[in-house]
């Protein structure tokens, strides 16, 4: 099977994707538009592929969840376009691509950073079906004026508790990017998440 092409315009497409990611993390709960022309091999979604191609490289290893690592085409696509090592140990990854968020491993299995270097921690990218600025998740913290609301599905069943535990470890912890078709939101570790 022929390798699917990467970003059509690597310089400017990557810049646009990065700005969407930057705005998503700087303004948690604000959903950013992310429209792409990528058609990566399934089950890798265009959004997950775009984020990996924009941010991963030889210095930033990728971890793939079970459905993604079951597809040799996905690994070949990511290796060719990013040059990033694909690691089996979640603790070694800079970015984790999760196509089945309902079965996402515990956040504590990923790199949390150290007290002196909390930045040496993972960013998880979850492929969702739906993402909206209304819903049961209530967000507070840096980047949010007052409160924000977020609806996102599917998520791990105990997601609010996991996010609370992640926030409690601040400044250690992981950061989440939620990527639904054409839409992106961020949940950095600094955000307090509760369920209304």
């Amino acid at each position: 099977m022929a390798l699917a092409p990467g970003l059509r315009d690597p310089v400017h497409d990557a810049q646009r994707v990065f700005r969407a990611v930057m705005d998503a993390l700087a303004r948690p709960g604000r959903v950013q538009a992310l429209t792409l022309t990528l058609s990566p091999p399934a089950p890798l979604t265009p959004e997950l592929a775009a984020l990996a191609l924009t941010l991963a490289d030889a210095d930033a290893p990728l971890w793939l969840d079970a459905p993604l690592s079951a597809s040799p085409e996905v690994a070949a696509f990511l290796r060719f376009h990013t040059g990033a090592p694909v690691v089996a140990d979640p603790g070694q990854a800079a970015f984790a691509l999760v196509s089945d968020p309902a079965r996402c491993p515990d956040f504590a299995e990923f790199a949390q950073g150290t007290p002196a270097y909390p930045d040496r921690s993972a960013t998880l990218v979850l492929a969702l079906d739906r993402l909206g600025e209304d819903g049961r998740l209530v967000l507070e913290g840096p980047g949010i004026r007052g409160r924000a609301h977020l609806s996102a599905a599917p998520l791990p069943p105990d997601c609010a508790a996991r996010l609370a535990a992640n926030h409690a470890r601040f400044p250690l912890g992981i950061d989440l990017l939620l990527a639904a078709p054409g839409r992106l939101a961020g949940l950095p570790r600094s955000t307090r998440v509760t369920e209304a």
Partner: peptide, 9 residues
């Protein structure tokens, strides 16, 4: 990547 971690912390 450094900017994203800076924003998160």
């Amino acid at each position: 990547r450094a900017i994203l971690k800076a924003i998160a912390i």
